[in-house]
């Protein structure tokens, strides 16, 4: 699944990735790739701007952390982010159910 198809769902994917554990950008991208069994082909350059947007919205927070002599920006979900993820997940479930009904009827 390539970038254009994923762009509209990137927010949901990032929130879901951070719901499992706090992560830095590269680890988050790798986590999504692993969980999708390599099917998700994210435009990696779009992930960092998206994370910043989620932070500006108050859904994630971040801080620097030293790891093996390197500084990493660690992202974690906020309470508002958890609520947002819940609503996004409901929206996704509705979409899948609705599209499924149409496809099954065709």
């Amino acid at each position: 699944m390539e970038g254009d198809a994923l762009r509209g769902h990137l927010e949901l994917l990032l929130l879901a990735a951070l719901a499992s554990e706090e992560q830095h950008g590269y680890a988050l991208i790798e986590w999504l790739r692993t969980q999708s069994e390599g099917a998700l082909d994210l435009g990696e350059g779009s992930v960092y701007p998206a994370l910043r947007r989620l932070e500006a919205a108050g859904w994630v927070t971040s801080s620097w952390r030293s790891d093996g002599g390197r500084r990493k920006r660690i992202y974690r979900l906020t309470k508002r982010g958890e609520e947002r993820l819940r609503r996004e997940r409901e929206g996704w479930d509705d979409l899948v159910r609705t599209v499924g009904l149409v496809l099954e009827a065709s």
């Binding site: 435009g43 990696e44 350059g45 779009s46 960092y48 701007p49 998206a50 910043r52 947007r53 500006a56």
Partner: peptide, 14 residues
């Protein structure tokens, strides 16, 4: 992706 595109994406996203 190209650095200009990444920067533009940041501005657009924010």
């Amino acid at each position: 992706g190209p650095p200009r595109a990444v920067a533009d994406q940041l501005v657009a996203d924010l």
